[in-house]
Design a protein around this nucleic acid. Structure first.
Length: 215
DNA sequence: TGCCAGGCCCTCTTTAGGGCCTT
């Protein structure tokens, strides 16, 4: 089973593109070690301009809540310290990664953390799910669900439990004992039809590796 | 002036288009 630490994180933002001037308004993250959440990070942040009613309606975060929140720069500096060089996970990671990189670049920080996407991996592990939205996957996997979505820490926690469940499913389905982070990254880029053969090969590799240690 | 995301996957693909997913 996976043993190395990962940090699952999520941003709520003013829109969909930092290149169009959008910024985060909340970050939430959970640190997972040995299949358990051992630490969390959460903060609202003031983007420096008012957010639209559309974003308010999605997130439940209002301009009044952001008025006295610390600025993005302050929060992101703390968040950079929280993640360090730990491998990162997010649901639809390309979305959150662009905001992470954009904000940290403004602080002259250039994170090189490895990153994996729980959405792309879930398409491989749960090909029969109705779709691969976070809410659907939480329901599909029968995970604890308080029906609160689109808040950063809530979504990070749920994605964290989804990540653990995907590791468990790989173990239970294919018998793969160790699930290193690079293996998950390989999986998200794998063609759907090749997943089964991929795991069969990995199991054989691990068994051979164990035999090599014993001999 | 008018428009405005973007990265990835899938397939009836690759000389491309449509859909998914995030806010």
């Amino acid at each position: 089973m996976q043993e190395e630490a990962v940090i699952v994180f999520d941003f709520e933002t003013t829109g969909s593109s930092p290149k169009m001037g959008d910024r985060p308004i909340e970050v939430g993250a959970v640190r997972i070690e040995n299949r358990m959440i051992v630490d969390t990070f959460q903060s609202l942040m003031n983007p420096g301009f008012t957010i639209t009613s559309f974003i308010e309606s999605i997130t439940g975060i209002g301009n009044d809540m952001l008025l006295n929140a610390p600025p993005c720069e302050e929060v992101m500096e703390q968040f950079a310290a929280f993640i360090g060089t730990t491998p990162l996970v997010a649901h639809n990671a390309s979305f959150d990664r662009q905001f992470l990189d954009s904000e940290l670049e403004q602080l002259n920080l250039y994170p090189e953390n490895a990153m994996a996407c729980s959405m792309l991996i879930s398409r491989r592990i749960f090909p029969n799910a109705p779709n691969h939205k976070l809410r659907t996957l939480i329901e599909y996997c029968g995970l604890a669900n308080n029906d609160v979505f689109h808040r950063a820490l809530e979504d990070a926690e749920k994605t964290g439990h989804l990540w653990i469940t995907m590791c468990d499913t790989i173990y239970e389905t294919y018998g793969l004992e160790k699930i290193p982070f690079p293996l998950m990254q390989q999986l998200e880029k794998m063609k759907k039809v090749k997943v089964e053969a991929f795991f069969e090969r990995k199991v054989v590799e691990q068994k051979n590796s164990m035999l090599h240690l014993w001999n």
